[in-house]
Nucleic acid binder design. Structure first.
Lengths: 164, 164
DNA sequence: CCCCCCATGTAAGCTGTTACATGATTGA
DNA sequence: TCAATCATGTAACAGCTTACATGGGGGG
């Protein structure tokens, strides 16, 4: 149940609306944990019931918008979860599964699978590098919000991530 | 819906029981696509209804056992699926997600996370190497069954896998 | 005035997890 | 005779995907 913790993590940088969260899942946290909009709103409701977040209703004209902020219990839970060491999820890799049966199809088909695979990971790598660069230059909105902590620390986190 | 294709793949090496399949998912295909027993039996039923596999009832004493064999439609479907190029599943990495929030916990906690992570992957790598060695020496039961094709081909497949 | 963005939700359906349940056979 | 292995299933639930649904605000 990690959408929950991903949300807590984002909210730990500051309060925001469900919509904002959706955006972050689209282009920043989404890099490591993706979640669709249809999962975020219900989860926020559940989290509020569980006392992990608090919400306040605001208005923009007639439009209702609900701001969510992390609660004390939420912060505690987030920290607990980060420290917790758990088992890894079972392996499930569609390409490797396909690769097991490459002997069943023409060589050319296998080759284009692998080409597509390489292309995919090259794109991915580019995205990561771009993202890492952005973080180093402090261009990330969430990171900016976190500047209550000193910046170099985040750099190390990111370095660790990239090392992985 | 890839349990289905994983099962088809295993069955393409020869007919076997549900129980046999469970074993293979436990220690060979499971390396790339894990599936619990409670998923395999129902899936076999569905696949039989869909005409992808055929089953025959056999007895061992009073004990019923059902042998499953891949049907023509199943082979076709497997081949189709192997050739198909699809999008990658969304990213969802629990450790990387944790790593994003390492700044919230004591340094020591982050360090032991990373240590555990490294240990995990070292174990994993060992397992892969062992497995690869077994395949090269043709010690794998499924591979033995496939020796209707010439063996060197499988080597290449495995090489591709390892390269990945 | 129209389109894109902001903003929030619901519903059906599939996949996978955890746990429960049962019973026969084989070998030590 | 006892434990491990062979053998097959069911049920409840959690998590995620895809699609549907609605409506106001802001800028060109």
């Amino acid at each position: 149940m990690s959408v929950r913790h991903a949300i807590l993590g984002v909210l730990s940088a500051g309060p925001m609306t469900g919509y904002d969260l959706v955006q972050f899942f689209h282009d920043s946290v989404g890099f490591v944990w993706s979640a669709p909009q249809s999962q975020i709103y219900p989860e926020l409701h559940k989290m509020e019931k569980a006392g992990l977040v608090r919400s306040t209703l605001a208005l923009r004209g007639k439009l209702e918008k609900r701001g969510y902020a992390i609660a004390a219990d939420g912060e505690a839970e987030l920290r607990r979860w980060v420290e917790e060491i758990v088992d890894y999820p079972p392996e499930r890799d569609p390409l490797r599964l396909r690769a097991l049966y490459f002997d069943l199809v023409p060589f050319a088909a296998a080759r284009s699978q692998l080409r597509a695979h390489i292309a995919y990971y090259e794109r991915r790598l580019e995205q990561w590098q771009e993202r890492a660069a952005a973080l180093r230059e402090l261009r990330a909105p969430l990171l900016e919000k976190r500047l209550a902590l000193r910046a170099p620390e985040e750099h190390e986190t990111m370095a660790a991530l990239k090392a992985h």
